[in-house]
Design a protein around this nucleic acid. Structure first.
Lengths: 202, 202
DNA sequence: AATTTAAGTGAATAACTATTCACATAGAAA
DNA sequence: TTTCTATGTGAATAGTTATTCACTTAAATT
């Protein structure tokens, strides 16, 4: 009735944010075009002025997630600290991101994505590859200053880094918040650090 | 028309297996009562002779998964080997289980379970807790024979063990099988082993 | 001010969902 | 053989879903 008209640029952002918020609170099962429209304050059919179809919305949500992840890398990238410290801070940034918005693990592992068409799967794979390559680059830096063992491949270490975050997110989510994410992050980091660093004196 | 009649005991098993297979091939999104019925060779309404509702089927699938996981623990439990070797073999068993049937990560992270009612979430949480406690017990054994550092809590180590498997499963699934699961398992194990074991001479 | 454009509406559709129910009958028990 | 019971059937229901379409109209463009 009295809905303000807004350009597609703005609406696309609003819709993607609304979709992310719905996933956070209701899960991907609750992510319907109708729900998104309601949250934005328009009628379902109006959504199709700004997105081809629902899949297109999911893609936009994935991009939103990617941009949030990238923000974490940027936050750490130019700090004048040891490469291993960068990883340590990165770990905490990611843990906080997840703790503040469990939509990320929810959508990343959802059937909406995993069970969908191969293209959607490829989109997510690209995001994860991107994250892994960022981490691997930092590991490479740490190796070149002699902080990390050179007999480890940076890619393998990156997957291990991923392994500190992802299972914890799942357990935390399942536990309804009872699982202590921060404690786990510290304990996992100690293990990781001990495994990865150059020991003693050469 | 010419469908053989079978007792509920048999049908329940058939239906649970069919459901697991459907999740493997089509994802939880493809898991409908109609699809399960078709795979078993009966009509959808006949399913309700053996299960209260769809939720009940999902519960049966979770139990099936739990029993497969437990088989891995049993396979390792009574072998006369070092506690750390047990973990190593367990790792490979789990990796093979996943490689042979990615229904497990798919359902474990699906909204069918996570997004559903709290009870279903609790069921899955119980399964994961069970797995973690099995691993923690083995870690405890390893500590008492002096193979694993005593300053680590077995529970924390168990989560780290989980972290070797779960992210690899996701990446492998997304990569369409291109990601080398076995290689990852070995590399992750080396890291884990170095981090966890008692080093040098006291 | 007149015209064009693109955003929003409400109704309709077609496909799918889980679930129920009256009925039929195979196979076990009597 | 007859009776009983539990398994299977097909049709119906009520719900949700994404998506389309003819239409209205706000706001930008001329």
């Amino acid at each position: 009735m009295a809905t303000k008209r807004l350009g597609t640029g703005i609406r696309r952002d609003q819709i993607a944010e609304a979709a992310l918020e719905i996933v956070r609170s209701k899960g991907t099962r609750g992510l319907s075009v109708a729900a998104v429209a309601k949250k934005v304050g328009i009628v379902p059919s109006a959504v199709y002025r700004h997105f081809r179809n629902k899949d297109d919305i999911v893609t936009a949500v994935l991009q939103l997630i990617q941009s949030r992840l990238n923000a974490n890398f940027q936050a750490v990238k130019h700090q004048e600290i040891d490469a291993l410290d960068k990883l340590h801070r990165l770990l905490h940034h990611h843990i906080e991101l997840i703790a503040g918005n469990n939509a990320i693990p929810r959508i990343v592992f959802s059937e909406e994505v995993l069970g969908g068409m191969p293209e959607k799967q490829a989109e997510l794979y690209a995001i994860i590859q991107d994250v892994l390559s960022h981490v691997a680059a930092i590991v490479g830096d740490a190796q070149s200053v002699g902080a990390v063992r050179k007999d480890l491949s940076p890619e393998d270490v990156a997957v291990a880094f991923f392994g500190m975050i992802q299972p914890a997110a799942i357990i935390w989510h399942l536990s309804g918040g009872a699982f202590d994410l921060k404690h786990h992050a510290e304990s996992a980091w100690r293990l990781f650090y001990d495994a990865v660093r150059v020991r003693g004196e050469p």
